[in-house]
């Protein structure tokens, strides 16, 4: 007999067994149910709001959050925390536009590449502090965030740029389709592609598995021969590049560049990742969960707008959603009971 085969039992499935089967690695199913429940509430409270336009709006506002969340996800799985990514993002986006205007050049692809490279360079600051000087990740990123913003405002610029270079602006206006009155921008495609790429990397590459290993137990990772500092350096470089790209997506979608934007959105992004199952203790989380987390946050915010709730309330409501999401996660993981059965089945004992 193969050692791992567990005996199948011919009796009715209980609810918790069904749940065990479908809950997903990071309890994504619970999240999906929560999203559906919220939609249900909307359907009752404000049925007229549930249109294709609404869906389009959710996607539109979720796309930058997702792009930012992907890099943060890597950091959180490895057991760290990062608050510098919005600063990196807006620095890269704004500086790229500034460079383009300064030299009077235009383009479509290379500005995104340049922004990503800037992000990577800025991410190397985090990498340096965390891997080389072994600083606490959150503290390191609090420091780099301040430095990056300072440099941006002092040396790059602090003015609002109201129009983008022409070709780039065309991207901001081109959509692949319309959902109701809401156009779906073409930039959705590269962000989705990136999500698939990160997901593949996390599941199928040694680098990805090392991130989970470090998040699970750093010392154990070292003991099996994983080069922890080298993995950390790569995490922060990639997270920086992703943030840089996200910053450019934000600038192009909003069709202007302001150095004061994005900063302040870190809570939403952290919330999305954490609700998606990446608990701050590290070692858990998935792209799928993060996507659901982003959808949930985006849904909540758009619903509040539809319901005409003052924006002052948004932070509060997002906070409550985070608490509920995290509570579900915590509850679900504590319910993961031991699976070994000791008693023979009841029929046998009767």
């Amino acid at each position: 007999m193969k050692a791992y085969v567990r005996r199948a039992r011919g009796r009715r499935m209980r609810v918790h067994e069904l749940w065990d089967r479908y809950k997903g690695e990071n309890h994504e199913t619970a999240l999906l149910l929560l999203i559906l429940a919220l939609l249900g509430v909307m359907a009752i409270v404000e049925p007229s709001a549930l249109t294709m336009t609404f869906v389009g709006d959710i996607i539109r506002s979720g796309i930058v959050t997702l792009a930012l969340a992907l890099g943060l996800l890597l950091v959180i799985i490895s057991g760290g925390m990062d608050v510098s990514f919005p600063a990196i993002a807006i620095f890269s986006g704004y500086a790229t536009i500034t460079v383009m205007n300064f030299f009077g050049v235009d383009g479509v692809l290379w500005p995104f590449l340049l922004a990503s490279i800037m992000g990577l360079a800025l991410g190397s600051l985090n990498a340096l502090f965390v891997a080389r000087y072994r600083m606490e990740t959150l503290i390191a990123s609090l420091g780099t965030q301040v430095i990056i913003r300072g440099v941006l405002l002092a040396f790059i610029g602090s003015v609002y740029i109201s129009t983008l270079p022409a070709q780039l602006d065309t991207i901001g206006a081109s959509s692949i389709m319309r959902l109701g009155n809401s156009p779906v921008n073409i930039l959705v495609l590269p962000v989705i592609a990136l999500a698939f790429l990160v997901s593949w990397m996390l599941r199928k590459t040694m680098f990805g598995r090392s991130i989970y290993a470090i998040g699970g137990d750093r010392e154990s990772a070292r003991r099996v021969g994983i080069r922890v500092p080298s993995v950390q350096v790569r995490i922060y470089l990639i997270a920086g590049a992703l943030a840089g790209f996200a910053g450019m997506v934000h600038v192009v979608l909003s069709r202007h560049a302001s150095p004061f934007e994005l900063v302040g959105t870190e809570l939403n992004v952290i919330a999305a990742v954490v609700i998606g199952g990446a608990l701050d203790s590290g070692g858990r989380g998935s792209v799928k969960g993060t996507v659901y987390g982003v959808l949930l946050i985006s849904l909540v915010q758009n619903s509040l707008v539809r319901l005409g709730v003052s924006s002052y309330w948004h932070v509060l409501v997002v906070g409550v959603v985070v608490l509920v999401g995290v509570a579900i996660q915590a509850q679900a993981s504590s319910r993961e009971a031991r699976t070994t059965r000791i008693l023979e089945s009841m029929e046998a004992s009767a």
Partner: peptide
């Protein structure tokens, strides 16, 4: 024991072999 609580039994057992093999892409 120095195990990884968040990973499966199979992945824990295979971890050092994987690290040593040094492949970039791994399969479950």
């Amino acid at each position: 024991m120095s195990l990884f609580p968040n990973l499966t039994v199979a992945e824990n057992i295979a971890m050092s072999a994987r690290v040593k093999a040094g492949r970039k892409v791994v399969r479950v």
